[in-house]
Simulated assay, not measured.
Amino acid sequence: MAGSLQDQLLGAGLIKDQKAKNIKTNKRKAEKKSRKTNTELENEAAKLGEEAREAQRLKSQALNEETRKAKELKEITAQIRQIIEMNSVFKGKGDDLVIYNFTDFNKVKAIYVTSKNHDLVSRGRLAIARLKDVYHLIPAEAAVKIQERDEGSIVLLNDAKENTDTTVEDDPYAEFQIPDDLMW
């Protein structure tokens, strides 16, 4: 397999003698013209190789970006799980539990908590977080940290400012007392 590519193609019978002569003539003319005008010959193979390298580089960058985003999402999920597990508040057990109703994905869900925790959730001091379809009570500060990473993990976080006991001047029901045993 010695010789140029052109000789090899001629030997294999893939091109004819006249075609090979035309290619040599065109190549010599192009070289002569480039010497006269002091320009370099265009190397199509190098150009195609450079385009292929550029396409490969762009593809590699896109794949790296996708991998980086997947890794980042995995890290955020692990951070959320750790925050929930470390800050989970005991819901209570026994017969003294009360039910707290809330919505999750447009469905009404219920969680049994102590009356103290019920009050804290209502006032916005505790929040309800979802971890693998299990609901946990966590402090509001931890819920804010989780919401910074992913809002979908926090199911309920009442605004503590809304729940402060302030009287409205034009409240027509201000003179009526709310019963102590009323549960919403």
Rank of each mutant, 00 (worst) to 15 (best):
I80R: 07
R81T: 07
R81E: 13
R81A: 12
R81Q: 07
R81K: 05
R81G: 12
Q82D: 15
Q82G: 11
Q82L: 10
I83G: 09
I83Y: 06
I83H: 08
I83Q: 09
I83F: 05
I83T: 08
I84F: 03
I84A: 04
I84D: 04
I84P: 14
E85S: 13
E85H: 14
E85L: 06
M86N: 11
M86D: 08
M86K: 11
N87Q: 08
N87R: 05
N87P: 04
N87S: 13
N87C: 14
S88N: 05
V89M: 09
V89C: 10
V89N: 03
V89W: 05
F90K: 06
F90T: 13
F90C: 06
F90I: 12
F90M: 07
K91F: 01
K91A: 04
K91I: 01
G92Y: 00
G92S: 03
G92I: 01
G92M: 01
K93R: 03
K93P: 01
G94K: 01
G94V: 10
G94Q: 00
G94F: 00
D95K: 02
D95R: 01
D95C: 10
D96E: 04
D96S: 11
D96H: 07
D96G: 10
L97F: 01
L97R: 00
L97K: 00
L97S: 00
V98Y: 03
V98H: 03
V98M: 04
I99S: 09
I99K: 02
I99L: 06
I99T: 11
Y100I: 08
N101W: 13
N101S: 14
N101I: 06
F102T: 07
T103M: 13
T103Q: 13
T103W: 13
D104I: 05
D104P: 13
D104F: 06
D104T: 11
F105D: 15
F105I: 04
F105Y: 15
F105Q: 15
F105S: 15
N106T: 08
N106L: 09
N106A: 11
N106C: 11
K107Y: 01
K107C: 05
V108R: 15
V108F: 05
V108C: 11
V108P: 11
K109E: 07
K109I: 00
K109H: 10
K109S: 09
A110R: 06
A110S: 08
A110Q: 07
I111C: 07
I111F: 10
V113N: 06
V113R: 02
V113Q: 06
V113F: 01
V113D: 12
V113K: 02
V113G: 02
T114R: 00
T114E: 04
S115I: 06
S115H: 05
K116R: 12
K116L: 01
K116T: 10
K116S: 09
K116F: 02
N117Y: 04
N117W: 02
N117C: 03
N117E: 12
H118D: 00
H118R: 14
H118N: 07
H118G: 05
H118V: 00
D119L: 10
D119T: 11
L120I: 10
L120F: 14
V121S: 02
V121N: 04
S122Q: 12
S122V: 15
S122P: 02
S122A: 15
S122M: 14
R123N: 15
R123P: 05
R123D: 15
R123A: 15
R123E: 13
R123I: 03
